Amino acid sequence: MGVIGPICFLLLADQLSYLKNVYRDDGIELLLAIYWLLLNLEGPAVSQYCALRLLQATLDESLYELAGELVRFLLRSGGNHLTGGETSAHVASVRNILENHAGYLMSGKELSKLVAFVKGTQFDLVDYLQRERLGSAHLDSFASGLELIGQKLQMGTLQSRLDAEFLLKHMCSVKFKEWIVILATLLRRMEVLFDLFQHDRRLWKAYSTTLQSHPAFEEYLDLLDVLEHKLASVGDDDRQGGPFVDQL
């Protein structure tokens, strides 16, 4: 591995203090200088391996702005210094690290961190959601989902509301009805809920019954009353609500 290669592992030995101190004091420039030093003295294989380790460390410590800088730099440098086959493997490694982290956050419903991760790294959340409907993004039921996501997002803060709006926009783009209903309820987005329920009365009935039967959801009863009056003024539509309705 030569003389410089071990520096990579020394730098990563104390990942938390090293990453936070470097990024605070010198920013991405110092990290990229280290990368170029490894690249020039040790070659692409060692430098790419160390850079991938560093990317994983930044994600583990939720340093998403720094992770985004590393991702962009890694993808550019991989194209410039690796052969065709090596480039494909390198890009796949970067994407695999990002997807694994997204899965970790979504499985734990760490939604504010997920939003910061997506914004910092430009991770394709829409593509991920389309593939993970029955995986890490799956919700067991409306009641448990509303309670858990409400606890995770802590809607009393402005940032949490902005995070919820960001997620709602992406869920709407992939028509992920389970998440749309929950996020729109937490945000009290009347127009979103009304649009869903006026075309799906079976979903509305299940939604109404669930909110009324759980004491923990008493705060949403006023929202329920307004929706009921608005829906009573439009025609009925008994189209099926899909499998999520049966889980409400």
Rank of each mutant, 00 (worst) to 15 (best):
Gln247Thr: 12
Gln48Cys: 12
Gly103Asn: 06
Ala67Glu: 06
Gln151Leu: 12
Asp236Val: 15
Lys169Phe: 10
Gly156Phe: 10
Leu125Trp: 03
Gln130His: 14
Arg188Ala: 11
Arg72Phe: 09
Glu219Asp: 14
Asp236Arg: 08
Phe123Trp: 05
Arg161Leu: 05
Tyr49Met: 14
Lys113Val: 06
Leu52Ala: 08
Gln154Asn: 15
Glu191Tyr: 03
Leu134Lys: 11
Lys169Thr: 15
Lys169Gly: 15
Gly84Ala: 09
Ser173Glu: 13
Gly5Arg: 01
Leu54Ser: 01
Arg188Gly: 06
Met190Thr: 08
Ile7Lys: 02
Glu110Leu: 13
Leu16Cys: 13
Glu132Met: 11
Val71Gly: 02
Asp124Cys: 15
Ser233Asn: 11
Leu134Gln: 13
Cys172Phe: 03
Glu178Cys: 14
Ala184Asp: 01
Phe9Tyr: 09
Ile180His: 03
Pro243Lys: 08
Leu59Trp: 11
Pro215Cys: 05
Arg239Leu: 11
Leu203Tyr: 04
Gly120Val: 05
Arg72Gln: 13
Asn21Arg: 10
Val181Gln: 10
Ser107Ile: 05
Tyr35Phe: 13
Ser213Met: 09
Thr157Tyr: 11
Arg188Pro: 10
Leu193Lys: 07
Ser93Asp: 14
Glu110Trp: 13
Thr185Arg: 02
Val234Glu: 10
Gln48His: 10
Pro44Gly: 00
Glu86Val: 03
Ala137Arg: 07
Met1Glu: 02
